[in-house]
Amino acid sequence: MNQHPDEDATVAAALDQAQRWLDAIPGVTGVGQGEQDGRATIDVWVTDPEWAERLPREVKGLTVRVRDTGGPITPQ
């Protein structure tokens, strides 16, 4: 992904905002930067896909993609 400095700042701001969902929305277990069709995305991992309804479709102009963890995550 070739990003311009402005795009890097947008992605960083979007990730910062999405990180807050870890504490605010039950079932969100992780967030990170992804890519779809050559564009940056914010990927959000959830333990139950039904939590996707509580998430915005985009943040700071970047698409939010919901990823299913396949169930609860248990520390080992």
Rank of each mutant, 00 (worst) to 15 (best):
M1P: 02
M1D: 03
Q3P: 05
Q3L: 13
Q3M: 12
Q3T: 02
H4K: 06
H4G: 05
H4V: 03
H4N: 07
H4Q: 03
P5M: 05
E7Q: 13
E7L: 04
D8S: 07
D8I: 06
A9V: 05
T10H: 03
V11G: 01
V11W: 01
A12P: 01
A12K: 10
A12H: 06
A14Y: 04
L15M: 12
L15G: 04
L15C: 10
Q17C: 05
Q17W: 07
A18F: 03
Q19S: 12
Q19R: 13
Q19E: 06
W21G: 00
W21A: 00
W21N: 02
L22V: 03
L22I: 05
L22Q: 03
D23F: 08
D23G: 10
A24L: 09
A24G: 00
I25L: 06
I25T: 04
I25C: 04
I25N: 01
P26M: 11
P26L: 10
G27V: 08
G27T: 12
V28R: 02
T29L: 12
G30C: 08
G30R: 09
G30D: 07
G32N: 06
Q33Y: 07
E35T: 01
Q36K: 09
A40F: 11
A40W: 10
D43E: 12
D43P: 01
V46I: 12
V46R: 03
V46W: 02
T47H: 01
D48R: 13
E50I: 14
W51H: 14
W51F: 15
A52Y: 12
A52F: 12
E53F: 15
E53T: 15
E53W: 14
E53D: 15
R54C: 10
R54A: 15
R54P: 11
L55H: 02
P56M: 01
E58T: 02
E58L: 10
K60E: 11
G61V: 04
L62N: 00
V64K: 07
R65T: 15
R65H: 14
R65A: 10
R67C: 05
R67N: 07
R67D: 05
R67S: 03
G70Q: 02
G70S: 04
G71Y: 09
P72L: 05
T74P: 13
T74M: 12
T74C: 11
P75D: 06
Q76M: 09
Q76T: 08
Q76P: 13
